[in-house]
């Protein structure tokens, strides 16, 4: 359970990035790869507590889950994987360690209230 420290890092990164802006933060959009080692439920669980008393208080956390994408040498194509238990091309069955997506743990964007 390291999700609380992940969330604290989200809060400090967003707070720092948005420090010059007076607008209220409504939503934080987080990209979470299937291989990032982070679970959405645990992130949501800690979000309200971790944002309390910060500029992110009252905002929503939106988690966008990204599946693993591998490059298949045999097909010469990018392939999306259904899970993380097998790293074989779903089309031809060739194993691949060439991971092109799935390790992300990134704050993509922040939704703010536009000043009237």
């Amino acid at each position: 359970m390291h999700e609380l420290s992940i969330i604290q890092s989200v809060v400090s990164t967003v707070t720092e990035a948005m420090s010059a802006r007076p607008e209220r933060i409504l939503r934080v959009r987080l990209l979470v790869g299937a291989l990032s080692g982070v679970v959405e439920g645990a992130l949501q669980f800690g979000y309200e507590i971790a944002t309390d008393g910060t500029p992110l208080a009252g905002s929503k956390l939106e988690v966008v889950s990204l599946p693993v994408v591998i490059y298949c040498k045999h097909c010469e194509a990018l392939r999306e994987m259904e899970g993380v238990q097998s790293f074989r091309c779903p089309v031809c069955g060739t194993p691949s360690g060439d991971i092109r997506q799935g390790r992300e743990l990134e704050i993509e964007s922040v939704e703010i209230e536009e000043a009237a």
Binding site: V10, L26, L105, E106, I107, E108, I112, E113, E114
Partner: peptide, 13 residues
Amino acid sequence: MTTRIVELRKGVL
């Protein structure tokens, strides 16, 4: 209320 999206693209770790 109008809202706006601000791109951050920052790694959490």
